[in-house]
C-alpha cells in the first residue's frame, strides 16, 4: 500500500521539521509543488528561504516539465545570495560575509515575516541550505552553532518546516544534525515521484513509500 502525499502531509503536527533529501538527478520540485498547494489549501502562510537561486531552479525544472508556475512564483521569498530577482523578495541575506552577518540578516528577515503573519500558522520551506552549509561545514563548531541559532529558533515553533537538501553535498556531521533535529526524514527516488520514509514519529509510517 502506498501512501498519498496529502495523507502524509495531513499527519504532520505543528512544530515538526520534515527533512527531504534528494539526489542531483531527481525531481524534488514535484514534491515541493505538492507541499505548497497543500499548505495553501490548509490556510497556512508560506515562506521560502532560498539559498543561491535554488527556488529559481525548481521553477525552471517545473516549466520544462510543462507545469504552470505563475502562482508559485509570487510566494514570499527570503533570498540568501543568488542572482535571480524572483517576484516577491521580502528579505535578503548575504552569504559570503562573516557568519554573524549572515545570522543577523537571517534573523531580521525571518522575524519580520513572522510579525506580519502572526498569529496565522506558517509552512516554512528551506531550499538550498546545504549549499550554504557546504561553505562552513569544515568547522564542527559552526555546524553546531548553525543548528542552535538558526534552525531550533523560537519563530519556527508551532509552524511546520520543510527542508529540501541535495545529498552528497553535506558531510556526515551536517547530515546527522539534520537527521537529529527533524521529526520526519523522507528520501526521494531517482525520478522524484516516490519518497521513502526513513524517520517518523509514529512507527507505522516507517518504511512506507509515498506516491508523489
Amino acid at each position: 500500500m502506498k501512501l498519498r502525499v496529502v495523507d502524509f502531509l495531513n499527519d504532520i503536527n505543528n512544530g515538526e521539521i520534515v527533512f527531504v533529501e534528494y539526489k542531483s538527478t531527481s525531481h524534488p520540485e514535484l514534491l515541493f509543488e505538492k507541499i505548497l498547494s497543500w499548505a495553501e489549501k490548509n490556510g497556512l502562510s508560506i515562506l521560502i528561504i532560498d539559498v543561491l537561486d535554488t527556488f529559481h531552479l525548481f521553477m525552471q525544472q517545473l516549466k520544462f516539465m510543462g507545469h504552470e508556475t505563475s502562482s508559485l512564483e509570487t510566494l514570499p521569498v527570503i533570498k540568501a545570495g543568488g542572482r535571480v530577482e524572483t517576484r516577491n523578495i521580502i528579505g535578503r541575506i548575504r552569504i559570503m560575509e562573516e557568519f554573524y552577518v549572515y545570522l543577523k540578516e537571517y534573523n531580521d528577515a525571518v522575524s519580520k515575516f513572522f510579525e506580519r503573519v502572526s498569529p496565522k500558522k506558517a509552512a516554512v520551506v528551506f531550499l538550498g541550505t546545504e549549499k550554504f552549509m557546504y561553505s562552513i561545514q569544515d568547522s564542527h563548531f559552526r555546524v553546531e552553532e548553525f543548528f542552535d541559532k538558526l534552525i531550533k529558533k523560537a519563530p519556527f515553533k508551532g509552524n511546520i518546516t520543510f527542508v529540501f537538501a541535495l545529498t552528497g553535498l553535506m558531510n556526515e556531521h551536517v547530515k546527522a544534525s539534520w537527521y537529529e533535529c527533524s521529526t520526519r526524514i523522507i528520501t526521494l527516488n531517482e525520478r522524484g515521484d516516490q519518497a521513502f520514509v526513513k524517520k517518523a514519529p509514529k512507527l507505522n509510517l516507517l518504511k512506507e513509500v509515498i506516491e508523489v
Binding site: S24, L52, D53, H56, G82, V84, K131, L166, G168, L169
Partner: peptide
Amino acid sequence: NYMRYVLGNEDRIGVYFINKNIATDAFRLQ
C-alpha cells in the same frame, strides 16, 4: 550558482561537457 541562474533565462541550449574524472563531487552534483 551561475549555472542555476542561466537555466531558463538564457535563450539557448547549453550543453556542458563534464569530464567526470576531473570534476569535484560538489561541482558535478550541483
